[in-house]
Every structure is written in C-alpha cells, then in structure tokens.
Design a binder for these strands. Sequence first.
DNA 1: TCTGGGGTCCTAGGACCC
DNA 2: TCTGGGGTCCTAGGACCC
Length: 428
Amino acid sequence: MSSVRPQVWALADINSFYCSAESLFNPAYRGKALVVTSNNDSVIVARSAEAKAIGIKMGEPVFQVKHLQKSHGLVICSSNYELYADMSARFMQTLDDLAPAVMPYSIDEAFMDLSGMSAFMDLAEFGRIVKSRVARDTGLPICVGISSTLTLAKLANNGAKKYPATKGVVDLTCPARQRRLLRITPVGDIWGIGKKLSARLIDAGIHTGLDLAQANTSWIRSEFSIVVERTVRELNGIACQEIEAVPPTKQQIISSKSFGQPVLELEDMLKAVASYAVRASEKLRGEGQSAGQLTAFLSTSRYGADEQYSNSLTAPLPHATQDTRIIVHSAIELIRKIWRPGLRYNKAGVMLGDFRTPGEEQEDLFAAVSDSVKSEVVMGLLDQINASQGSGLMKFGRSAGSNALWEMKRGNLSPAFTTRWTDLPKAR
DNA sequence: TCTGGGGTCCTAGGACCC
DNA sequence: TCTGGGGTCCTAGGACCC
C-alpha cells in the first residue's frame, strides 16, 4: 500500500506574453513601453513592464493611450495571434521536455505536476532550470510558482512576478511562507476573486489573502458561494480544483465582434452575423463536433448617450449539424427576430452549443440520409480549399465580399515571423 | 469618432411531469 | 386561513479567467 503523496504543482507563466513575443522579433521595442491591442485595435490586452509603469491599464481603450506615443515613446502593436500560437507551442514543448506531466491552462501558462519530485530534487532549483531552458529555447521570460494546490501555485507565481528578489521563481510549499505571502496579498489578487467578490469580501472585513484563508468555510459558503469556499480550502492546501492533461472538449463556440463603426442597416447586420456564423461553423468542424443549438445576439454600445438595447435569442437547430448553410440560415432568422430598427449597433455574434459527436447521434428521422452525407462532403471540401488557399477564399452568400463597416482593423500588425516564410526575420 | 473576444462554472427560477 | 409536492430539465444571468 502506498501512502498518500502530497501534491505539488508548479505554474509556469510567460511574462507579458504578447509584448514579449513582439519584442523578441523587434529588438528595438525592448525596454520601451509597449502594448498589444485586441481585435479591432480597440483595447489594450497586454502591457510591457514599462507600459504598466506609466499607468496603462489592462482593457483600457486604445484611443485613450494614443497620446503616450509622443510623450512617452509608447509602441502600440496589433495582436498577431498566428505568432503567439506558434510561440506558445514552443513554450509548451520545452515544458514537456522537462516535466513529467504538463497541463496547458491558457496560451501563456501551464501547470506541471511535480508530486514526488522533492525527494530527489530541490523544487526551486527545478523552477530555475525550467526558466532558463524556456529562455534558451524560445527567448521568452517566464516566472515559476510552486505549491500544493493550483490556487497556491498561482499565488506563488504572482509573488515571483511581483518581487524581483525572487528572480522569477517561488517555492511556496512551506505553510509558513504561504502565510507570509498571503498576509501581504490583497484579497482581490487571489485567483478566483474578481472585482465584485473582492468588494463584497472587503465589506465583510476580509482584506488580505490571509483573512480569506482563515475565514470560516460554512460562513463563506452561505454568504458567498461554493466557489469562494473552494478557494478558501485551496488556500489551506486542500485541493478542490482539478486540471487535466488533455483539455476537455469544448462545450460552446462563440464568434462575435464589435464593429469598427456603428451598424444602422439590417442588411449590414445580417452580413456581419452571416460571417460570424461561417467562422463558428469552421471552428465547430475543427473540433469535430455538431451543434444542436444556436444563439444569436446583438447590442448597441454600453457607452455614450444613444439608446441602449441588447438582446439574444436561442433556438434548437433542426437537427445536430456542422453545416455552414444551416447555421448561417438559422443565425439570420434569429437576428431578424430581435432586430430593432433605428438603433446604432456596435456588436453582434453567434454562439453554438449542445454539441454531439457526429456518428454517435441518431440521424434525424425526417432528414434524407443523402442530404447529411452530401453536406459533410461539401463542408469538408470547403474547409480544405480555405485551408490551402488562405482562409476566406470560398465564402457563402451574405458573408461574401468585404464590408469596411464591420471588418476587423489590425493597423499595427507585426509580420508572421515564425509561420510564413516570406516574413522570416533577417539574420543580422 | 474610437471601450475585446472566447471561454468556464454555478445558481435561481420557471416549465413540466407524475 | 390553508388550495400538492418533489424531481428534473432548461435557460438566463452573473461571476470569474486569460
């Protein structure tokens, strides 16, 4: 019989990932205040340390920081997801080479199961090895946090990021160290405690991570929720969160975008929504799933003086499908129903849900089998052509043709350095 | 002028069924 | 006075994360 082995988790997280990736290929950016913007170049999604230092906030609208280009030499980059996806894969590969079990958590971070490792290796030393190997293999700076639960590993990682004296690695397996770090951590910096919850917790007298860790769990559960109760337990070394090596299959697919400028005409709205439905269908087939349900939504801007309106409608699809034509058609029908004329819309989208794996599902008894087979063939062909000729070459009805009204802006895009031959950086 | 996109989980309440 | 009760399914909405 084996005794229970204490769990040990490490979290490796790339520092300011998108900014680090950009300055990797543009050495001139290094040491500068640098931000990367969202789709449409509308808000800030990543900031270099220098950009943080001059007060730029996460999610801040780009137009509000533009003046800093002149006054502070701020560099603004559009997001280059092809580049980031590729760099992310290299980062994950390096972790895979070093750790027994790697669980990617997001594009720029992964948990590693280090249980049992401390018997033959100092955990902080392992963290330093990971850090230097990632730097060597990818050029990306990371921090590593180590502890007994995912939430504590996250806390350790935050400590490694925040305090330069740690040199980017914190081993937080020792309970006394946990308490010391928790005492100086605001409750809102704990993983799982966002803006709303931290305001309520502070009202209740809970200001620090340590206050939260020492709170009574049944009181937390009744006053807040089971989610916060789990966080409290995790802070005390009791695992309540799990993570799997194989990412679970998606439960929903969303395709939505804010418009470059307000949409006033139904026809423009339908074109935009049709294009989102096409994209969502492509993602759906990429996942190897069929959807049984579709939601379409639209809204006006939350800001400004215009009349506000936001609505969504969900409907089952005639049968579980991955057919772009059916999905586009249904999305358009739903949008027509919630469309109200005379408003300035700034966003719309579609959401697919109720997934089934094709083949495990009984065919709709009223659909001709040949239809379904035909549809698969057509869709497969379409994906192939788009993949080999560049996405968006073959399009459907309303989504065909460009429309400057709602298309994405990426005015400051960096080249696809690692994924397109013609964009390879020149050796110096 | 311009304020992201894509996900997860949990909960409360209504519909429905027996 | 009091007008079933309990289970399940579905959905909308809220909170969080990156």
